[in-house]
Nucleic acid binder design. Sequence first.
DNA 1: TCAGACGTGTCAGGTTTGTGTCAGGTTGGC
DNA 2: GCCAACCTGACACAAACCTGACACGTCTGA
Lengths: 221, 221
Amino acid sequence: MKFLLVEDNAELAKAISSRMKFDGHVVDHADKIGDAIAFSETGEYDLILLDIMLPDGDGRSFLKQHRSGGQDTPVIVLTARSQVSDRISMLDLGADDYVTKPFDHAELQARCRAVLRRKAGKGKTEIELGGAVFDPVAGTLQIGGAAIGLRNRELRLLELFMNAPGQIFSKQKLFDRLFSIDDDASENAIEVYVGRLRKHLEGCDLRITTLRGLGYRLDHG
Amino acid sequence: MKFLLVEDNAELAKAISSRMKFDGHVVDHADKIGDAIAFSETGEYDLILLDIMLPDGDGRSFLKQHRSGGQDTPVIVLTARSQVSDRISMLDLGADDYVTKPFDHAELQARCRAVLRRKAGKGKTEIELGGAVFDPVAGTLQIGGAAIGLRNRELRLLELFMNAPGQIFSKQKLFDRLFSIDDDASENAIEVYVGRLRKHLEGCDLRITTLRGLGYRLDHG
DNA sequence: TCAGACGTGTCAGGTTTGTGTCAGGTTGGC
DNA sequence: GCCAACCTGACACAAACCTGACACGTCTGA
């Protein structure tokens, strides 16, 4: 996936884009509205992350031009907690979602995935795999008709796996995605959650394989 | 489909119309009541999107003239959150639905589709779910034949849930949608309203599920 | 102008439960 | 057989949530 990040705070921009790159995305970075528009007009982005406070105008003007140019690239707005009015009008102007600063990277990732999925699947967010149906928006997992109640962390862990079945996630990576910087939990927590998730997945053809020293992987079949 | 958009806020108008165009519709835009009437008299529109706060009078006068002219083009009213009471009179005057700002584009799309479908198939305006009949248009909730009186905030909360049953709403999101910028209420208010709504929903198969750390969800069955 | 009704948001105290840790057991590679 | 990595049942705690009571403001009708 190719992302466009529009953010004037260099530090934050670097943090976000390095994380995104780590996740396997390509990130272009603009720190001015002018640049952002020029970039986006190429139309080659899958998603745009837009800060609304920028040196040469606010995100509104970008959104306006972006949409009036007939572009439909999804936009997620990054906004401060205090700017409630802004994030509301952003939605009106055609933003697809907003994330309030300060945000966990995990949260941002989740929102990105949700928006991309919504865009790609025409509103459908469910993922079907190995006899299980997972809907991250509803927060439900269905196995053989029965709905299974998942909690917050379990849900987010499952979402990670479901989005990349067959891929190895190192414990460190899972930890980074599940916890925020200032959470100081031990890596054992991951083991615990994998265990809990496994229990929930009994009864379908999905299983989480342990790869000693490497991490975990979701397999089906 | 050909839409008429009556909206004086140029930014918002552009955002809406560009999105609609992207969806494959043709959009004409009027920013005054006078123009709107002239446009609509051609009778060539499938749907009219009407803001009620306009420089040369409010949407009421447009609606009145529109209907008295014998036109039955469906009208969706765009209204600010604060103008809740207005919407009822709008509906009395013959509007088919309303959308409160701020709205997701997805929501607006959904409403448009619903109204068009209704018009084509002569459907009803109520939402029926889990043994309850909710009429967002009249603002009433019926359970087992008995009408339940909902207050303003409860109504709008229920409306949010009813429009997206099975979907998780974070407390933040509910807060953003229920309160306006300068309202500084605590998030506990949401908990209180959910509680009150739950009490009203006793006696039907609808229930609001709490998902700790995630939000709330309307379930039925 | 006053009284009563009503909608609304806060608060405090109580309850629930998601969560991470721990300790001891198990597994797998070398 | 030994060590490290991993699993897991039990547990304790704090955050998240619920709720009855209350206070404040607004509106209405007399």
